[in-house]
Simulated scan of single mutants.
Amino acid sequence: MKLHLFKHFNNLDITATSLLTLLAIYNNQVTIFYILYLFWWNEVIYTAVTFYYKKRSGFVIGLGSKLFLLGIYWFFIVLFFGFIAPHQNYNLVALNFEVIFFKNLFFNLNLLFFGGELIWLYYNNPDLIEKSTIHPFSARAVILHISIILGAIMMMMVVPSFSNFFTPDNNWSSIVIILPFILLRYFFQRSSLL
């Protein structure tokens, strides 16, 4: 495997995700749901692209457990973080609807960039296809697991305790909410676990 190409992918991915997310924060377009749904879609895109390239290269792999877990996560993320947790703030629910229906420019750019970047990585490094995994508890899935737990803690304990600070108008509160997720992903990517 060309390690420099893989590190370049990780650096480019975290930089693009961070910049697009900061732009979204600046434009008041980010919620906890946004970042969790982004991580979920990154896992779906990674699974689909990796499966396609593995299948094309003749590898036999199963997706059943991975798709089952992603389905459960989708239901939980959309239901709890998209609708139930922010139910008293219609502006947040409206933002979440925009994300779900791909009406959020920054979210869409994040997804397009990640998918294009992953295709470019596999196209330029076919050896990586064999080493890539699609199991339910990969490093990417662990980020999703931890992010869901962290998001639930923040939504249930942190945000209500500091309701004067965590307002939709306060961009700094969005940064405080999103920063742990971005740092978690950064840690995994810098450790080359992704």
Results as ranks from 00 to 15, higher is better:
Lys2Thr: 04
Leu5Tyr: 15
Phe6Asn: 08
Lys7Thr: 04
His8Gln: 09
Phe9His: 08
Phe9Trp: 01
Asp13Met: 03
Ile14Cys: 02
Thr15Leu: 10
Ala16Trp: 01
Leu19Ser: 08
Leu20Pro: 00
Leu20Asp: 02
Leu22Lys: 03
Ile25Thr: 10
Tyr26Trp: 13
Tyr26Cys: 00
Asn28Val: 08
Thr31Lys: 05
Ile32Gly: 11
Phe33Gly: 05
Ile35Cys: 01
Tyr37Ile: 05
Trp41Cys: 11
Trp41Ala: 11
Asn42Ile: 03
Tyr46Ser: 14
Lys54Gly: 06
Arg56Glu: 13
Ser57Phe: 13
Val60Gly: 02
Leu63Lys: 00
Ser65Leu: 15
Ser65Ala: 14
Lys66Arg: 14
Leu70Gly: 08
Leu70Pro: 07
Leu70Gln: 13
Gly71Pro: 09
Ile72Asn: 09
Trp74Cys: 10
Phe75Arg: 06
Phe75Ile: 14
Phe76Cys: 05
Phe76Val: 15
Phe76Gly: 01
Val78Asn: 10
Ala85His: 06
Ala85Phe: 14
Pro86Ala: 07
Asn91Gly: 11
Val93Thr: 08
Val93His: 08
Ala94Tyr: 15
Ala94Trp: 13
Asn96His: 08
Phe97Pro: 00
Phe97Met: 12
Phe101Lys: 08
Phe102Met: 07
Lys103Trp: 09
Asn104Arg: 02
Leu105Ala: 05
Leu105Gly: 00
Phe106Leu: 00
Leu109Ile: 10
Leu109Gln: 03
Leu111Gly: 02
Leu111His: 08
Leu111Ser: 05
Leu111Ile: 06
Leu111Thr: 05
Phe113Glu: 06
Phe113Gly: 01
Gly115Thr: 01
Leu118Tyr: 11
Ile119Val: 10
Trp120Phe: 14
Trp120Tyr: 13
Trp120Cys: 08
Leu121Val: 11
Asn124Phe: 14
Asn124Lys: 13
Asn125Ser: 12
Thr133Phe: 01
Ser138Phe: 10
Ser138His: 04
Arg140Phe: 07
Ala141Ser: 14
Ile143Gly: 00
His145Thr: 02
Ile146Gly: 01
Ile146Ala: 12
Gly151Trp: 12
Met155Asn: 10
Pro160Met: 07
Ser163Phe: 04
Phe165Tyr: 15
Phe165Asp: 09
Phe166Tyr: 13
Thr167Trp: 11
Thr167Pro: 07
Ser173Leu: 10
Ile175His: 01
Val176Asn: 00
Val176Gly: 04
Ile177Gln: 14
Leu179Asp: 03
Leu183Gly: 01
Leu183Phe: 09
Tyr186Leu: 14
Phe187Gly: 06
Gln189Asn: 09
Arg190Tyr: 12
Arg190Trp: 07
Ser192His: 13
Leu194Gln: 05
